[in-house]
């Protein structure tokens, strides 16, 4: 299966939680952190389940999520 990871721009996230139900592998959750604007933000669990499907990034209204596919070195 494809492996991936996401990078969340913490100061863009407004904690709207729209990305959480979109993630079918339960890799995104609310964190206990707040950003510089005072929004409680989401975090990437990094539990090695992300398959880089990009659905979280598609629904993120703030364009705060970047998605990367992890490639083996020989590819």
């Amino acid at each position: 299966m494809r492996k991936g990871k996401i990078k969340i721009d913490e100061n863009r996230c407004k904690g709207c939680k729209l990305c959480i139900p979109e993630c079918k592998v339960d890799e995104i959750r609310m964190s206990t952190k707040s950003n510089k604007y005072g929004y409680n933000i989401v975090e990437f669990r990094a539990a090695n389940r992300c398959n880089a499907c990009t659905l979280c990034a598609i629904v993120c209204p703030e364009a705060a999520i970047e998605v990367f596919e992890l490639l083996e070195d020989d590819k």
Binding site: G4, K5, D9, N11, R12, K14, G15, C16, K17, L18, Y37, Y39, A52, T54, A57, I58, P61, E62, A63, I65, E66, V67, F68, E69, L70, L71, E72, D73, K75
Partner: peptide, 27 residues
């Protein structure tokens, strides 16, 4: 391990954060 970008912030969006409420469809 190499990384391939599958989704990134569009260039046509400025750096300024949206002034809309969290979760707004405008954004």
């Amino acid at each position: 391990m190499k990384e391939k970008v599958l989704y990134k912030r569009p260039v046509a969006l400025s750096e300024k954060p949206f002034s809309y409420c969290p979760g707004c469809t405008h954004s």
